[in-house]
Design a protein around this nucleic acid. Sequence first.
DNA 1: GCTCTATGAATGAATG
DNA 2: CATTCATTCATAGAGC
Lengths: 237, 237
Amino acid sequence: MSQEKKCTRTLDISELKTEMVIMEWDQQQDIQPQNQREENGNLNVNNGGVMVMTDEQLETLRKQIAVYASLCEQLVQMHNNLTAQSHQHLTLTGGRLGNLYSDPLMTHSGHKISARQRWTPTAVQLRILERIFDEVTGTPSKQKIKEITSELSQHGQISETNVYNWFQNRRARSKRKQAVAAESEVETEVESPKTKQDNLPVPQAKQDACFQNPQITSQLHLLGGSYRSTHGRVSEI
Amino acid sequence: MSQEKKCTRTLDISELKTEMVIMEWDQQQDIQPQNQREENGNLNVNNGGVMVMTDEQLETLRKQIAVYASLCEQLVQMHNNLTAQSHQHLTLTGGRLGNLYSDPLMTHSGHKISARQRWTPTAVQLRILERIFDEVTGTPSKQKIKEITSELSQHGQISETNVYNWFQNRRARSKRKQAVAAESEVETEVESPKTKQDNLPVPQAKQDACFQNPQITSQLHLLGGSYRSTHGRVSEI
DNA sequence: GCTCTATGAATGAATG
DNA sequence: CATTCATTCATAGAGC
């Protein structure tokens, strides 16, 4: 990465921040336009299928949309700056959200490269899973799995097996992580005299000891993602 | 190294993260129905300027916001993937839902502790690993891993996880190499050389509607660029 | 410096 | 559950 690009990025982010602040204001209006259900007292819908709201509320909605639009624009801009050299660019076409459902991969020369086969939790699903994971001890029962699956299916393709596997893996890896963590805890107490490089001229040798700490390491992987920058490969959402 | 530069960016993004949490509240409505917000009185009040709109119109607004919100989330994820340094990650967490997220590793005053660095075996370590790899068939037991780690630590920073991963990868790739080699023998006779991206025989994706809100999934495809649904995990403190 | 590749690491799924 | 396998993601370095 070049120096210039970094500078640019920082700038973009700062601007983004500005917009977000506006959103906070919006949010303080405590309007819930997103709410799909006609909650009691939330929206006043009369018999004619007509909904009544104040100018102020409408204005809030509009502002929120504007903020999001602006946000998206800037995020896209940011992305383009980041990938300015050789990667693909994003485009936000007009205010209208077009329906470009085409997957570039699929449309290229009929060469179908398949999308991934294995399930990948969406951000939302993952959040929910993590929450449940913290709440519950042990692997959820069969019934519980069903419920969770049901809930998660609202946010993307998922099966009970996925959920089951996820909990199995999550538990196992959480456990192992702890074990290793405890291990390094002991190691840190005993200062090993030979831990440093008695071994010489390897330039890479200087490393922050922190990266060896499993606790930290796991947390470093905050949000993984599957974004393939090389070859411009794409797959579905 | 470029630690300072990363640090700078961390500052900006950490703040942005905070704002993003707020941004997300829209989406949370469907996910966390049990979370009660103070909705009463907000939309019913019509003192003075009263706005009347149909359900349809309202729905349009809602959708638009939802689309943008989702877009933003996706964009943020893309950003994370592009700037994959761990502490540059933006995070969208259900902050308003009692899921109080705080990154213990990152003081929001902007001082990062460490960046992720991946382990790189030294020449000596590699030689030892290769030797052991040839000696042993299959995966070394945990005990064995410990021993190896211990030995290798004489020659540089290393953790058991590193060793474990190394063997996993080494074995997997050795295997794959053989398979590909055998395959290409047959291939060369009949067909032109295949790229190594050519695997994954399963044709069409069955996870098209994999993103959270089904009604807006198609619109998310408006992004002409390459990205796909992400997987990832939230730090568990 | 920009791209490409080898490879460390993460993780869904499978197996015992 | 404990391990292992398979696949993919991300990146440090090599090469142009």
